[in-house]
Write a protein that binds this DNA or RNA. Sequence first.
DNA 1: GCCAACGTTGGC
DNA 2: GCCAACGTTGGC
Length: 155
Amino acid sequence: MPKFWLMKSEPDVYSFDDLLSEPEQTALWEGVRNYQARNFMRDEMRRGDKVLFYHSSTKPPHVAGIAEIAREAYPDPTQFDPNSHYFDEKASEAEPRWVVVDVKAIRKLAKPVTLETMKAEAALADMPLLRRGNRLSVMPIKEKDFETVLKLAER
DNA sequence: GCCAACGTTGGC
DNA sequence: GCCAACGTTGGC
């Protein structure tokens, strides 16, 4: 049974279109530096899990597309790179601290599903994204919420 | 181990 | 630009 996730990205930094233009429409999901988000990626994400790709810090914030986990967790190379914004001096090859997964785009939504639309949808009321103050960039969602968002994209 | 200060996220 | 929420850091 695949699990379902929502992953946030700022489109100015990395957008769903960027993912679509990658070879194999696949990229490393690098730069996660929050332990709870890391643990989800490391311990619970499995190949074939489905992902809502969410654009944050944009107007309006929205789900842009769907993707899947193409490779399970392995060390995030940016943590070892002193020139990277994501460099972590406390991490080493022997004891990596952060992980990436590979994410592969499935398709763009027919139309973006905005945060406002999701908030107005009673069926999504318990989705963690909509909880006040939620800052997690990687979060599990329920299959029914994933399906509801897909339906909203067709409306 | 507590907690104040500080930094970041992200919607508005 | 503001600010709520909350994670991290560091002094004690």
